[in-house]
């Protein structure tokens, strides 16, 4: 299905409201919508929502042959799927421009900033390494998929446990969870993205744009940063120019938000880890079980 067109009335109103510093959900322009992280019972699965935007993430691991150019590095794959479940204009199968951009940005932010220590995923150099694959599905789309998906990847990966492997001579043995406790993946830092939408040639700025705001915006600035204030990604899209000061201001806002978000994610992770440790027997339940319960 095609996308619902944007009417002039909606566009004019969004701009007019911004002139008064107002947004349709009564947020201030620098506020992020409520974030909810819901870890599922299986390791490495979670559903993250920002407002009404909802994304599910599932981590899986495989043993594959490494790339010839990097024989001692594991492989990290991130795959974001925009299915019609999220919005009527998302199509199955072929990747839209938006899909390509989002996948690329996630890859840039997480893979290229070495979020996961992929050298620890090596089992035997040049022969066998772990491939970690993260499948993301947009369950509902109401703007700002990127930030939501990014948090979902971080949470799912931190939540995941990899089976332990021992190498003796030519023999590689993978232990079941009953034999030996699976081990967490080693993450180096948490690069969190924040999206800014600009209106009226950069005159107005909002953080965490909704679907309507995304339709009305002139351009978007994405900044990925970890809590040490190291910038991992920066992308400006749309047809608009920004001043140096504006970008600096956005970086400051990001630093502030990232500090809070990192703390929040850490807290949620600690909560679920202690829950899971107490109740090891739930390991067998699946995504479907959890969905039917909630």
């Amino acid at each position: 299905m095609r996308e619902v067109p944007l009417s002039l009335a909606e566009y004019d109103f969004v701009i007019k409201a911004l002139q008064d510093n107002l947004r349709l959900d009564r947020r201030s322009v620098y506020d992020i919508r409520d974030i909810k992280i819901n870890f599922l019972k299986t390791r490495g699965a979670c559903i993250v929502s920002i407002g009404n935007t909802q994304i599910s993430a599932q981590v899986s691991a495989d043993i594959v042959k490494p790339k010839d150019s990097r024989p001692n590095e594991g492989i990290l794959k991130i795959n974001l799927e925009l299915s019609p479940m999220g919005a009527q204009h998302f199509e199955v199968g072929k990747q839209s421009d938006q899909g390509v951009e989002l996948n690329r940005l996630l890859e840039k932010n997480l893979k290229q900033s070495r979020f996961l220590d992929i050298e620890t995923l090596c089992i035997r150099a040049g022969e066998k390494v772990w491939q970690i694959r993260i499948d993301l599905n947009v369950l509902n789309y109401e703007g700002n998929i990127l930030d939501c998906a990014n948090i979902a990847v971080i949470c799912a990966v931190s939540h995941f446990r990899l089976p332990e492997v021992s190498v003796t001579g030519d023999q590689i043995k993978i232990f079941t969870p009953e034999e030996r406790n699976p081990i967490p993946l080693i993450t180096i830092h948490m690069p969190i993205t924040l999206s800014f939408a600009f209106f009226d040639q950069g005159k107005y700025l909002v953080v965490d744009p909704t679907e309507l705001e995304e339709k009305c915006m002139d351009g978007k600035l994405v900044i990925g940063m970890n809590r040490h204030r190291e910038i991992c990604t920066m992308q400006l899209s749309g047809n608009m120019l920004l001043l140096k000061d504006q970008i600096k201001r956005c970086v400051d806002i990001t630093a502030n938000k990232v500090a809070k978000l990192t703390e929040f994610i850490q807290e949620e992770l600690n909560k679920t880890t202690s829950d899971l440790d107490q109740n090891q027997s739930v390991r067998t339940s699946s995504l479907a079980d959890k969905m039917s319960l909630t």
Binding site: F13, K16, A17, D20, L22, R23, L24, R26
Partner: peptide, 16 residues
């Protein structure tokens, strides 16, 4: 639904 009011605040109020 189309609404027209005298102020943005009122529109947002009605919308919500």
């Amino acid at each position: 639904i189309w609404i027209k009011t005298s102020s943005c605040k009122q529109t947002i109020f009605l919308f919500q």
